[in-house]
């Protein structure tokens, strides 16, 4: 006996047909975070008159990777994190490899603890991000000291950590809105 069911797309609770246009739409929505981060790294490196440009670059990269890896891991895959880190390291003239490792560490932590992070409030999540920023900035400072073979005052590293921690709430508020409005596969 053959049942005359309506097409699946019109049934509630069933996903619409995965047409090429829809798949492309979902892929573009999910690619927006890492593609915009790639563009942002390039733009930040171009404006040399911006005060604290290197520290800002570090903060925006860490904040973006932390947020998207925790809240929508599909939009920040590990290969994209690697790509962004490599671009940031090659365009900036800091100690090579340090931004790359910092981004992978943040991605690893946020991705592994994403279920825990989704259950806790913003403040503990921010606290974890702050701890990561301080540790990774100091790691970058140690590598810079080893590369230069002398003691470099750690003020720049602390300023970078402070700036990264300070801009995260603003970044997070922006990303929440973007997540709801654009980077949302259900809206495709």
């Amino acid at each position: 006996m053959r049942l005359d069911l309506p097409p699946p797309s019109s049934q509630p609770g069933i996903e619409p047909r995965a047409s090429l246009r829809r798949r492309l739409d979902v892929a573009l929505r999910l690619a927006l975070p890492w593609v915009s981060l790639l563009v942002c790294v390039f733009l930040l490196s171009a404006f040399s008159s911006l005060p604290g440009e290197s520290a800002l670059l570090f903060g925006i990269c860490l904040g973006s990777v932390y947020f998207w890896s925790a809240h929508l891991p599909e939009s920040m895959p590990s290969w994209a994190v690697f790509l962004v880190g490599l671009e940031a390291d090659l365009i900036s003239f800091g100690p090579p490899g340090t931004i790359l490792i910092a981004l992978l560490v943040v991605h690893g932590v946020a991705h592994t603890w994403r279920y825990g992070l989704s259950r806790i409030n913003f403040l503990p999540g921010w606290g974890l991000f702050a701890a990561l920023c301080i540790i990774l900035s100091l790691f970058q400072w140690v590598v810079a000291c080893v590369g230069a073979l002398r003691f470099i005052p750690p003020m720049s590293a602390l300023f970078q950590a402070g700036l990264s921690i300070g801009i995260y709430p603003t970044l997070s508020a922006l990303f929440v809105r973007v997540h709801r409005a654009i980077v949302n596969p259900d809206r495709a």
């Binding site: 590990s78 290969w79 994190v81 690697f82 880190g85 490599l86 390291d89 100690p95 090579p96 490899g97 340090t98 790359l100 490792i101 992978l104 690893g108 590598v143 080893v146 590369g147």
Partner: peptide, 13 residues
Amino acid sequence: FFLLASAFLVLGV
């Protein structure tokens, strides 16, 4: 990717 990044870091130093 961690291995690749570590190799890049060592190369940089």
